[in-house]
């Protein structure tokens, strides 16, 4: 697999959970999530994809939304975690920590001097 395809596949697997993690402590609106993502290298290549992603997670019951007034401009849709969303984020974190440790172990201890 070419390295660019690999990065895309890896991103696809985790992006949803990264968004859920960013909503863990506080509800946020889409633009806010995009700003947070900008500081995370390589996590979000097309910024607009956050919106279909959020809409899909809402359809799946992982997040729900509420409109909030803004100081100026029109009200914004804020996304917050549901119970199922909280659960999904905890499950992912547990799984991810184990998985990362396994991969790290293979590369450091079993991969020879190049590792």
């Amino acid at each position: 697999m070419p390295i660019e395809g690999l990065a895309t596949q890896l991103r696809k697997g985790v992006i949803e959970y990264c968004v859920l993690a960013m909503l863990r402590n506080t509800p946020r609106y889409g633009g806010e999530l995009i700003q947070l993502m900008r500081s995370q290298d390589g996590l979000l290549t097309s910024e607009g994809t956050i919106y279909p992603l959020l809409s899909r997670m809402r359809a799946d019951g992982l997040v729900d939304t509420e409109w909030r007034e803004t100081p100026r401009g029109s009200p914004r849709r804020y996304y917050r975690l549901t119970k199922a969303g909280q659960q999904a984020v905890s499950d992912f974190q547990r799984e991810w920590v184990r998985f990362r440790a396994t991969v790290d172990h293979v590369f450091v201890h079993e991969g020879g001097p190049q590792g």
């Binding site: 097309s46 607009g48 994809t49 279909p52």
Partner: peptide
Amino acid sequence: RLGDPAELAAAARDDGDESH
């Protein structure tokens, strides 16, 4: 920066979760 509309639409469709 927003991305190609086709890419956004793919993100709306893609489930990435077989059980779902």
